[in-house]
Simulated assay, not measured.
Amino acid sequence: MLRALWAVVKRELIIFIRYPTWVVAIFIWPVLFPLPYIFGGKALAGPNQVGMVTFSRLTGMSDYVGFVAIGSLLWMWMNMVLWSFGNHLRNEQVRGTLESNWLSPLPRIFLLAGAGISNCLIQSAVIFISLLEFYLFLGVKIQGNPLLILLVLLFIIPSIYGIGLLFASLVIWAKEVNTMVFLVRGIMMIFCGVSFPLTVMPEWMQVVSKWIPITYGIRAFRLAYLTKKGFEAIKGDLLILGIFGLIFFILGILAFALSERFVKRKGTLGVY
């Protein structure tokens, strides 16, 4: 089974590097994406940047550029997982390989597990490149402990890929995931404080944000990366991320089992 799992991982990595524009994009988007929010924030801060005083008071951080860059990085990570890993089985349908792979003598969840591992490897490279470019082009420096930053990333993974697993499972019978991806990433952009402090939102929006796992991931990563507050400042966020990750993984596995049963009963696995 491990050989089959590795075969899926290897195949996805080969497909990725076969399209050079995909590789080039991971060097371009990390710098381009946060720029509108960075320049917009500086413009709204006024000619003397007096608005930055209010920003520092609300967030406890002085690096606005780093604040936006970190938020945009995690949003891009979630977005790319939803599109690639979340749409993996649909891509198999389009290629015409889903039915033959489905008949292979291994747990079908391995088809998603291999895609998840390959996507995680690619996204690890994206994160490293992004943080390097933030330093080189935006002047964002690490203020905290690198090991603590790595710990936060490890706690974010279950939540992000749990949501991706749920999406990938549902697309078996839904046949189309675009609308849901647009909806979810839009909600995260607005409610998770990607480019602004959560405290400026109305109270009801702050309540909604507490039910979205990436909110805690963004906050914990910012604290670990841009401040020296240490583990005590983020342990609560890590605990909540762990709980959300477990919940979404269970929901994703259940959704996959239900979707598998649905396509067996209806005979719609190969229906385009």
Results as ranks from 00 to 15, higher is better:
1 M>L: 11
1 M>S: 12
4 A>T: 08
5 L>E: 02
11 R>S: 12
14 I>N: 11
16 F>S: 08
16 F>E: 06
19 Y>H: 14
21 T>E: 14
26 I>G: 03
27 F>L: 05
27 F>T: 02
29 W>H: 08
31 V>H: 08
33 F>W: 14
36 P>A: 02
38 I>H: 06
38 I>V: 04
38 I>K: 01
39 F>S: 09
41 G>L: 00
41 G>P: 09
42 K>W: 13
44 L>I: 07
46 G>W: 09
47 P>A: 02
47 P>S: 07
50 V>T: 15
50 V>P: 01
51 G>R: 01
51 G>D: 07
52 M>R: 10
55 F>T: 04
56 S>F: 03
66 G>T: 00
67 F>W: 01
68 V>S: 03
69 A>C: 05
73 L>G: 07
77 W>E: 13
80 M>K: 13
81 V>Y: 05
88 H>F: 12
90 R>N: 13
92 E>S: 09
95 R>N: 13
96 G>A: 02
96 G>P: 02
98 L>Y: 03
100 S>T: 15
104 S>C: 12
111 L>Y: 06
112 L>I: 05
112 L>A: 07
113 A>S: 11
113 A>I: 14
113 A>W: 11
114 G>R: 02
115 A>N: 09
119 N>T: 15
120 C>S: 15
122 I>E: 11
124 S>M: 14
127 I>E: 04
132 L>G: 13
136 L>W: 14
137 F>R: 01
139 G>C: 02
139 G>Y: 05
143 Q>F: 11
143 Q>W: 09
144 G>I: 05
144 G>K: 03
146 P>L: 07
148 L>S: 01
149 I>H: 06
151 L>H: 03
152 V>L: 02
155 F>C: 03
156 I>K: 10
157 I>K: 04
157 I>C: 09
164 G>C: 03
168 A>C: 06
175 K>Q: 04
176 E>R: 12
177 V>F: 12
181 V>Q: 06
182 F>R: 13
183 L>A: 12
184 V>T: 08
185 R>E: 14
187 I>E: 07
188 M>D: 08
188 M>Y: 11
188 M>Q: 13
188 M>V: 13
189 M>V: 04
193 G>C: 00
193 G>L: 00
195 S>L: 05
196 F>Y: 13
204 W>T: 04
204 W>F: 10
205 M>H: 06
208 V>E: 07
213 P>L: 01
215 T>G: 06
217 G>F: 01
218 I>E: 01
220 A>P: 01
221 F>I: 08
225 Y>H: 06
230 G>P: 00
232 E>G: 09
234 I>G: 03
236 G>F: 09
240 I>W: 04
242 G>W: 03
243 I>Q: 05
244 F>T: 09
244 F>A: 05
247 I>D: 10
248 F>Q: 04
248 F>D: 04
251 L>D: 06
252 G>W: 00
252 G>M: 04
255 A>I: 02
256 F>E: 03
256 F>V: 05
257 A>H: 11
261 R>E: 11
262 F>K: 15
262 F>H: 15
266 K>V: 10
271 V>N: 11
